[in-house]
Each structure stands twice: as C-alpha cells, then as structure tokens.
C-alpha cells in the first residue's frame, strides 16, 4: 500500500514536471500568453473599476475589493486554462487514436491526465501568473488578501478549484466517447462556467433566482470561492464553509469521474474507440 502511494506520488511529480516542460515548449506561444494574461487582467479590472465608480451603491464590497476580485479570478483562469483542459485533451486523443497508447501504461488514465494538467497549471503559475500578476497588482493598486488566514484558505481553495475544474472537464470529455466531438457540448459547458462560476461577474451581484441556481451547482466553487475568500467577502466560518462545500463537490465529482470512466472503459473495451 505504502509502495503504491509512493509510486503514485513519484508518477505525479514526474508527469507534473513534464507538463511544465510542455507548457514552455513553444517560446513565442509563451510570450504571447504572458502578454495576453497581462492585457486581459488589466482590461477586466478597468471595466470593473468603471462600473464601481458608476454604481457604487450596487456593490456589497469596496472598489478595491471589486478590482482585486476581478484580477484574482482572471489570473486563476489563466493558471487553470479552463477553456482548453482535460476535455480537449480527451477529444484530441479519441480523434487521433493516441488514447490507446495511454491505456497501455500501468497507471490509470484519469490519474495520468490529472498529473499532466497539474504540471501545466503549476508551470503557468510560476511562469505566467506571477510574472504578469505581481507588477499588475502594484500598478493597479490591488490589495493583498483580507487576512493571513484568508490568504492561506484562498490558496487551499485554489488547489480545490484545480481539482474541481479537472473533474468537470474530464466528465465533459467522457461525452466525446459517445459523440466523437466536443462541439455543442463544449459550448453549453463553457456557457455554464461563464455564467455560474463567478469568473466574469462576482456572484454577490446576482439576483435571487440566479444566485439560488448557482448555489446548487459546483461551478461557483471553481472561481468565485477562492476569489471571494481572498478579498475577504467570505471570511471566518463562511469562508471555511465555502471551502468545505468545494471539498464536498470534489469528492462527489471524483466518485462520478471514477464511475464514468469505469463505464467508458468497459464500453471502450467492448466496442473499441
């Protein structure tokens, strides 16, 4: 058992390292990604700053918190690249048949993919998010976490965001085994993330019904929770509760992922790819 866990850890680190190498394989792409991240954060923060100045009474937080929330969610999105995660990798592998190669290895496919995504996200954190984010935070006068505990909790919450997003992406990717294409499914999925995750609009601005819908779905835990904890809108027991909800979703979705993959693997084994 200990040996299996040790092996799993070594595989995770090795995949993560290679994921990091892959994300820096194309020099031009790297510099463009860095520029894109900076422009994107600057633009979104500016828009929210203008909105806040125009309608300050509509916001339950300060102008500084609003701008920081916008920057944190955008930088988290850059780190997680939610629009091109595991679902795209699965779709590509199903289409070009390289999935078979991954199935030949003595490590489960979902675990291989998780490790790979982790490596790429870790690399983007170090090579894109921090180099773009730190100067922008200084330049735009954005704030540190609401408290030290909030900062730590927000960091833990971001790790859970990664896991949650990976699980959602993987589950969406499983659809490709039936449809052989991400088209359609991807648009619906991305619309849900855009609307209900807090990526573009802080969920505290949502009217009752929409807020109620977001409460019962896992998407709010992906971007809203870590950013709301960071800026201190959620703090103390509320922040811990929000992170517990994240953890609960991560467990539930992992069980769903395992069951979904087991079914897909059975169908794949019976039917071919």
């Amino acid at each position: 058992m200990t040996s299996a866990v040790g092996h799993g850890g070594r595989v995770l680190l090795a995949f993560a390292w290679q994921g990091a190498r892959t994300s820096t394989a194309y020099t031009t792409a790297y510099w463009m990604e860095l520029l894109n991240a900076a422009v994107r954060v600057f633009a979104v923060v500016t828009v929210w700053a203008v909105l806040y100045r125009s309608y300050p009474q509509q916001f339950p937080v300060t102008g500084g918190q609003t701008k920081t929330y916008a920057a944190v969610t955008q930088l988290t999105a850059v780190m997680l690249t939610w629009w091109s995660g595991a679902h795209h990798r699965i779709a590509r592998q199903v289409r070009d048949g390289t999935l078979y190669v991954d199935l030949l290895r003595p490590v489960s496919y979902p675990f291989q993919l998780l490790c790979w995504e982790l490596g790429e996200s870790a690399a983007r954190l170090g090579l894109v998010v921090l180099p773009a984010g730190i100067p922008l935070f200084v330049l735009l006068g954005l704030g540190p976490p609401g408290s030290a505990a909030g900062g730590l909790l927000s960091a833990a919450s971001t790790v859970l965001s990664f896991v949650l997003l990976y699980e959602c992406n993987f589950l969406v990717g499983l659809v490709v085994f039936r449809t052989l294409s991400l088209k359609g499914v991807q648009h619906a999925y991305h619309a849900l993330i855009t609307l209900l995750s807090g990526l573009w609009i802080p969920l505290w601005l949502y009217p009752g019904p929409l807020a109620a819908i977001s409460q019962v779905l896992p998407f709010r835990s992906i971007f809203y929770t870590p950013a709301a904890v960071y800026v201190g809108y959620l703090d103390g027991p509320a922040a811990v509760r929000a992170c517990a909800v994240q953890l609960g979703w991560a467990v539930v979705l992992w069980l769903g992922l395992e069951a979904g993959w087991a079914g897909t693997r059975r169908a794949l084994s019976a039917q071919g790819g």
Partner: peptide
C-alpha cells in the same frame, strides 16, 4: 503492461513536445 511492449507504427507513444530523454525519464517513473 509491465510485461509487454507495444508499438503502433501509425501512433507515437512519445510525448510530442518534450525531448525523447524526458519521455524515457517519465516512463521510468510510470
């Protein structure tokens, strides 16, 4: 998987964007 090797001529088992040696290092862990 530990007892057999498989090569599909039409598909590579190498990770596309990393050096061959890095793929081998990864396989060492796997």
């Amino acid at each position: 998987a530990r007892r057999v090797g498989v090569v599909f001529g039409h598909k590579t088992s190498l990770w596309w964007d990393v050096p061959v040696l890095d793929t081998y290092q990864l396989l060492r862990r796997v």
